[in-house]
Design a protein around this nucleic acid. Structure first.
Lengths: 154, 154
DNA sequence: AACGATTAAATCGTGTACGATATAAATACA
DNA sequence: TGTATTTATATCGTACACGATTTAATCGTT
């Protein structure tokens, strides 16, 4: 069936399954987030702000592992939707503080049901809660390994 | 520290860790793939073709879970790089067969070392091979669950 | 005070992702 | 044999991602 060495098979590489599952998971969120009129990365930013309001672009950047070149336009779109304010700090004009508007705070009420609804959607007989738990533990370890190595490179 | 219910914490949602680890993993590939002058999704397409040459756009689509709206421009870029040919089938003019050029086939020789080099990079004392194995098993189950549910919806 | 180095965001260009729609070919079937 | 339906790919518009660079403000050192 295959001509290539098995190291190069799609399934045997770490990358593809992670890439595929990430995209599929995002697609699960999409219809739920449409009700809030936000995208998935916008939802992540709001999660960060709901947990702690008034954060710098650089704070959000560290949290989501996204650079300003991704965050700046995204935050401008959230500002257009009147969900956040972007205010340049007086004490240090380089920094921009991101704060939730009232609408942004209130959106949290519509969002609280999302995690629950999502878990409902992906429930499967084949996959135990304990198994998912374990996967998450490994992924968190992987993230800290990879995040520090890519930090070292930049 | 936090004002939001813990269901809405970034770390407790399935989505963010999967999203973050996928992007971090892709970044690990980037410098290796630069040597081949291809991007990560282009690499995935080539992996599919190296395993079995001469596949339809729809075959690659099923394999990578990417639609034609993503694949068509990507394949055109691979064609520009002279790595693949795109030939419309005579028997059925709707179908487009994707085949490796000689350069595309030869690129495999430069790619064989990538999986090994990558595993080297992400090796960590905290993470056992068995643990990664287990994570992959769970992720594969998740993918088949999610892929079938999203198929049902479309 | 002066000026090079650092830092925080923003800008730019390229390449995905993907929903929605379009196009054109093949098929079904009345 | 038309004609409605389905299928395979392509096109379009929007929104990320991200490397590279720019801009402007602050810091550090002399």
């Amino acid at each position: 069936m295959s001509s290539s060495p098995k190291e190069l098979w799609l399934e045997n590489q770490l990358c593809f399954p992670l890439y595929a599952v990430s995209r599929l998971m995002t697609k699960q969120y999409t219809p739920l987030l449409e009700e809030l009129d936000i995208t998935y990365p916008q939802y992540l930013v709001l999660l960060v702000l709901w947990q702690k309001d008034d954060q710098l672009v650089s704070d959000i950047s560290k949290r989501l592992l996204l650079e300003s070149n991704t965050l700046t336009p995204l935050l401008k779109r959230l500002e257009q939707k009147q969900l956040v304010k972007r205010v340049r700090q007086e004490s240090d004009e380089r920094k921009v503080l991101i704060s939730l508007t009232n609408a942004g705070k209130e959106l949290q009420n519509k969002a609280v049901c999302i995690p629950e609804r999502l878990v409902e959607n992906i429930k499967s007989e084949d996959i135990s809660a304990q198994e998912v738990e374990q996967m998450m533990t490994t992924i968190h370890k992987l993230i800290s390994t990879l995040a520090t190595t890519s930090e070292r490179l930049s």
